[in-house]
Design a protein around this nucleic acid. Sequence first.
DNA 1: GATTATTTAAGTATAAATACGTATTTCATA
DNA 2: TATGAAATACGTATTTATACTTAAATAATC
Lengths: 219, 219
Amino acid sequence: MNGTINIVLADDHVLVRNGIKAMLESDPDIRVVGEAGSGAEALEVARQLHPDILVLDIRMPGMTGLEAAARLPEVAPGTKAVILSMHDSEDYVLQALDAGAYGYLLKDTDKNEFIRALKQISTGNKYFSGSVSNVLANRLLNAKPSKSASELPRDPYHLTRREKEILRLVIDGKQNKQIADVLGKSVRTIETHRFNIMKKLGVNNAIDMVNKVVKENLI
Amino acid sequence: MNGTINIVLADDHVLVRNGIKAMLESDPDIRVVGEAGSGAEALEVARQLHPDILVLDIRMPGMTGLEAAARLPEVAPGTKAVILSMHDSEDYVLQALDAGAYGYLLKDTDKNEFIRALKQISTGNKYFSGSVSNVLANRLLNAKPSKSASELPRDPYHLTRREKEILRLVIDGKQNKQIADVLGKSVRTIETHRFNIMKKLGVNNAIDMVNKVVKENLI
DNA sequence: GATTATTTAAGTATAAATACGTATTTCATA
DNA sequence: TATGAAATACGTATTTATACTTAAATAATC
């Protein structure tokens, strides 16, 4: 990353801010340039300083961290909000996402992970504590409920393992020569497999093979 | 659930297995009870030992970790699969989810996080490395915005009308002879169009052409 | 009406895929 | 250890696709 990451910390407890500040500034690339004790104050400081990242405790007097995160783009468009919380409550996590937060970290996140998270976020990625990913993953799975079953590779054509492996490479656009090289086999072998695969699938050319595989979600 | 967590490690490199094993067994609650060097072997060992967690490297000879994860319920219903990977590729992460994996950890995950992840997974939660959560979060956010922009066929390659028409037929699995018949043109004409299309798209074979068109939502 | 873009199509080669049949080796498993 | 499935590989032949170049006949547009 290019240069120092400027951070503003918002938490209504000075002690907590000090603790986090000490933790973060042990890394030479991170600098805490401002602090705030409430959501409103956080926005005000962010407007003045335009830090790279605004770390917001979720629970603060007046305006919560979630609210502040949602308003952040109005006052400091380039600044990325990160929510700090004690709980990995599903509600909070999803609200943070909705609020446009770039991260959701638990307060018991250890130092290394915290720093890693901030660095990743400063590059524009999102970072959610691993413990929180549970919420995201479940949400994603429930969003596409019927999929997970039919998303599993089906196998109605009794393709062997090798055949599937080769099929995968074929679909990836590799030609027989390349596949042969990758697998350390002769081109003739690949051709044979390919012939057998097409026979099993009942198709007459490579493109129909690809279409069939994609459509029927084989592999 | 409050006893020892039994783990089976699957990675095709003994060194990697040893490293992870040493790392994990520094925790008194975790025991590595088996190892495997391939996806198939992993399933076999899982069937015999029914561990709490099966840690699968994503890249293994023959059957990938993702495939093995998907098949795991058939051979060891209670065992939870965790994918280990070098990359936080979006594809892999989502595939892992689909495969029913309980976790996706990057290989550079540090010891504490690794152990925390396994403990959380053993209780039935999911755990995705923070760096990976980026993928999940974006997926969740993009789930509904039915991209009005990318829904429309894009045209960054300046394909002519005829070229698109032919491209459509090619993707439909038609071969040049058939296309020529349908359009009442000579096969050479179709070949020329096809050559020009591939040139414009910058691909070297039909399958990559299909892939590109599908992926980039041309046509 | 001149200019430009598109469509059409051929020439000439090479490379690759398709279509089988056949056959050996490997390997899990009965 | 016999058996069958899977993986390996060659032979032979035909068909398609790829890789260019060139160039004419049609549009389209300015």
